[in-house]
Write a protein that binds this DNA or RNA. Structure first.
Length: 480
RNA sequence: GGCCCCAUCGUCCAGCGGUCCAGGACACCGGACUUUCGAUCCGGCAACCGGGGUUCGACUCCCCGUGGGGUCACCA
């Protein structure tokens, strides 16, 4: 059993690439088959080496590794279609010879005019098959004259062509609906249809797993397999990931670049887990599971074919689950590795303590900096923030100096004694504990929302805390 | 528009003829815990697109309709 992922390097790595590759991977690993990565760069105009590299890197980032591919080689290479041009030309030639294809000398201009005319007439769009009617002599003449040509598939005029989709069942098309598809472009490069079929056969791909958008061109592929006299692979069309409005997921409406997910601090294991949930389920009610677990229980029986809306909120929740379930050490390591923060100058121990406090408050690793900034810098804030709800400036001018006086003389600067001291102070003076803590929180962290106050003070250290409180003391003077 | 695919809570999934006054998760709304936020725990809200069949019995099978999506390039 062999499967392949066949991305086109014409842009940033796409979530769809990872989505399909995930199912390729799960199936291959589950069945002990081979997972091949093939680069479909036959569009010389749009394909770039940078994009290819980015796609490979992104797939490696999410943790899907392949057995054969342009970077690791393999027995059926080359795995980059641009390096297989002569193979496709030979196969196109073969189709020409067996009468399954013909040369088309139509210019782009004629094609465009024809299209316009047909559109106006309401006729079936597609090629009007002018060159299919050329006599051998006429064709020879044009060929000898050096007229540029494409090679088109000679689709039967009658009958129908169908295939069996493993998760969708039988799909049939009338041949009259199928266009005489261009197989070889005038630049000598194949189109997707030719290259894909030829490579899948040559690379012994047994299961073609791809997105739903390919269903309508599958009959052309079936016709090609038949023309070559090859056995059909098993086709599996996965549903298309959708935007909120249910249209095919697109960067205009939703983030689609894997690079973006990485920058945002989504964990690859969470992203994969989330993608797995799109159309597949474990069979029990598990929502969180590893790639390994998915592989173990993978089966096509549990794949749905309706298009799932990509729900960023659920992804964030799941990512948060992963963030919280790892050790602070590992979390910090991964934050520094990317890196999602530039605080390399900070003592490792302090970073770790900060990570512990911030861990259950962030969902994405990129949130670390914002969530922890006040540990490293004094942030600006409004003096009025010092005033707790249902209290006034007078309270601040009461509480802050009192706290300051007590804390200044406190020797053991760890959370428990700090809390003890402040709790007692509040009690003695008949203050609401929460109110006192809030004044202190803003003074020390510069924010009304922060990590737990006393642990935070412990991490900040006495000197810094006192200094910040003294700053707040000044601010409090101006409060009205 | 032609062709094709799809159709259970707002969203993701469970259900594969009776065990379903439909289950889990996210989101949302309450409550508990709590020094803020968060996390955690508990509870709540919320759906079988419509109509015909088939069957003793349909969320589950078939047909039609409707809705959504994809595709109609010398792009993949």
């Amino acid at each position: 059993m062999r499967v392949r992922a066949a991305p086109s390097p014409t842009g940033p790595p796409h979530v769809g690439n990872a989505y399909i590759a995930l199912f390729d991977y799960a199936f291959a690993r589950k069945e002990g088959g081979d997972f091949v990565l093939r680069i479909e760069d036959t569009d010389a105009e749009r394909s770039t080496r940078e994009s290819e590299e980015a796609i490979l890197q992104a797939l490696r980032w999410v943790g899907l590794d392949w057995d054969e591919g342009p970077d690791v080689g393999g027995p059926y290479g080359p795995y980059r279609q641009s390096e297989r041009a002569d193979i496709y030309r030979r196969h196109a030639q073969q189709l020409l010879e067996t009468g399954s294809a013909y040369r088309c000398f139509c210019t782009r201009e004629r094609l465009a005019d024809m299209q316009k005319l047909r559109g106006a007439q309401g006729a079936r769009p597609g090629y009007d098959r002018l060159c299919r009617g050329l006599t051998p002599e006429q064709a020879r003449e044009k060929l000898d004259a050096g007229t540029p040509f494409t090679v088109r598939l000679k689709v039967p005029l009658e009958g129908q062509t169908g295939f069996e989709d493993l998760v969708r069942g039988t799909v049939v098309f009338r041949n009259s609906e199928i266009d005489d598809q261009v197989l070889l472009k005038s630049d000598g490069f194949p189109t997707y249809h030719l290259a894909n079929v030829v490579d899948d056969h040559l690379m012994k791909i047994s299961h073609v797993i791809r997105a739903e958008e390919w269903i309508s061109s599958t009959p052309k592929h079936v016709l090609l397999y038949q023309a070559f006299g090859w056995d059909l692979p098993t086709f599996i069309h996965m549903p298309l990931l959708r935007n909120q409005d249910r249209s095919k997921i697109s960067k205009r409406k939703d983030p689609t670049s894997l690079l973006w997910y990485r920058e945002q601090g989504f964990l690859p294991e969470a992203l994969l887990n989330f993608l797995a949930l799109m159309g597949w389920s474990t069979g029990d009610d598990r929502e969180k599971f590893s790639l390994q677990a998915m592989v173990q229980s993978f089966t096509w029986n549990r794949v749905k074919t309706s298009g799932p809306v990509f729900d960023m909120q659920k992804l964030e929740w799941l990512n948060g689950e992963y963030v919280r379930s790892m050790s602070a050490e590992e979390l910090l390591e991964r934050i520094l590795a990317e890196p999602y923060t530039r605080r390399f100058d900070q003592p490792a121990e302090k970073l770790l303590q900060v990570t512990r406090l911030v861990q259950e408050r962030i969902k994405r690793l990129a949130e670390f900096d914002e969530a922890s900034r006040f540990f490293f810098e004094r942030e600006p804030y409004e003096a009025a923030d010092l005033i707790p709800k249902k209290h006034d400036a007078a309270f601040v001018r009461d509480a802050l100096p009192a706290a300051h006086a007590l804390l200044k003389d406190l020797d053991d600067w760890s959370a428990e004694p700090l809390e003890g001291a402040m709790r007692d102070a509040a009690e003695e003076r008949g203050w609401k504990r929460g109110a006192l803590y809030m004044v202190l929180r803003v003074a020390v962290t510069c924010r009304r929302v922060s990590t737990p106050l006393f642990e935070t003070m412990q991490v900040l250290g006495k000197q810094e805390c006192i200094a910040r409180i003294e700053t707040a003391l000044d601010w409090a003077e101006e409060l009205t």
